[in-house]
Amino acid sequence: MASDEGPLVDVVGLVKEFRRVRRVPGRLSAIRTFLNREQDVIRAVDDISFSIMEGELIGFLGPNGAGKSTTIKMLTGILTPTAGTVSVAGRDPSRERRANAATIGVVFGQRSQLWWDLPLRESFRAVRDLYGVPNGEGDRRQAELVELLEMDDFLDAPVRQLSLGQRMRGDLAAAMLYRPRLLFLDEPTVGLDVVAKQRIREFVGHTNTESGTTILITTHDLEDVERLCRRIVVIDHGRVLYDGGLAELMAHYAPYRDLVVTLAEPHDVDVPSLEQVDRNDRRVTLRFRSDKIKAPEAIAAVTATHAVVDLSVVEPRLEDVIARIYTERGLPDGPP
């Protein structure tokens, strides 16, 4: 759902530097350091720019220390940029923190915004009161979220007694009770089991498609990205390495597929347009470019000339592509 009024989030030339006093061994050197205020400058975010349109669901990726959390803190108004500009719904987050807080919701995977000793139901009441949600609207919204996230069984349990998955569902509901336009999710599935992850992903997808909520998700679990995001922004060392579609990234960086065949007899396979990249007795791996030949054609070419007892097509992994981007510090200019 794009807005005719321009991007919901606009980041231009964003820089964030931190300063720390340089530690020098020895008493005299330490005194000189104190008097001269010798400092190291650490640039956590280094001139990044991107925009987010209303209704997008974007994966914000990067290794630890890449600058993701620092960027999020500037978007939420917690930190003030050293240079550059940030606009969220037309506001400067660090100058208009109260108004910005009403526009955004934030969920941190390992830090709860719920009241530890209160029942979950009372935590929701406190959030509704804090954001001035009218009782009727709040009751309807809470009932909808409780149903979507299946929280009936533990609504009256103190937050400290909830499992990690239950608490995460509670945090998501609390963040959506006042209908923010923009939701930041920081590692929302970290530490969760398979069932809990699936429930969270379904809710995030529903919130984006049905409510039109704009979502920026940071995660190291790339299955979250594959299931939810059409666009990703990859940063490292405070710089943007890639900003674009997930499908386009895979087509550019990993245009190949692997056809793994088990033959009736052990031998090499020589088929045009396919490259044999591995063989282990009767098991042979053949690689082909999906922009040159389609999987059914590759399968037909092999089975027409070889006795095959089993086969499978293996897609390239997003995890491998992202790791390669980190290693090479961005995409190559030309085709792979």
Score class of each variant (00 low, 15 high):
71 T>K: 09
126 A>S: 11
100 N>H: 04
82 T>C: 05
65 G>R: 06
98 R>S: 10
104 I>R: 00
118 L>N: 03
71 T>F: 11
99 A>F: 10
98 R>A: 14
113 Q>A: 15
98 R>H: 09
96 E>P: 02
129 D>T: 10
94 S>G: 03
115 W>K: 04
129 D>Q: 12
70 T>F: 07
50 F>N: 07
99 A>H: 08
91 R>T: 02
103 T>D: 09
103 T>R: 11
94 S>P: 05
108 F>N: 05
105 G>R: 03
73 K>Y: 08
121 R>K: 09
103 T>G: 01
54 E>C: 00
62 G>D: 08
61 L>W: 13
89 A>D: 15
69 S>Y: 14
106 V>F: 13
91 R>D: 03
77 G>V: 09
50 F>G: 04
77 G>L: 02
60 F>W: 10
82 T>S: 15
88 V>Q: 04
94 S>R: 06
81 P>M: 00
107 V>Y: 12
71 T>H: 11
79 L>W: 13
54 E>Y: 01
54 E>G: 02
127 V>N: 03
66 A>W: 06
116 W>N: 02
118 L>I: 04
100 N>V: 14
131 Y>A: 01
81 P>A: 00
58 I>N: 13
66 A>S: 15
104 I>A: 02
82 T>H: 12
56 E>P: 10
66 A>G: 06
80 T>Y: 13
52 I>W: 08
129 D>M: 14
92 D>S: 13
133 V>H: 01
65 G>D: 07
116 W>S: 00
108 F>M: 13
71 T>C: 09
49 S>L: 03
77 G>H: 07
102 A>E: 14
117 D>G: 05
111 R>N: 05
50 F>R: 09
69 S>W: 14
60 F>Q: 03
59 G>W: 00
114 L>F: 05
92 D>Q: 11
67 G>A: 08
72 I>W: 11
106 V>W: 07
81 P>E: 01
56 E>C: 04
123 S>T: 10
90 G>A: 09
65 G>Y: 10
103 T>Y: 07
47 D>P: 11
65 G>H: 12
68 K>T: 02
95 R>P: 02
74 M>E: 04
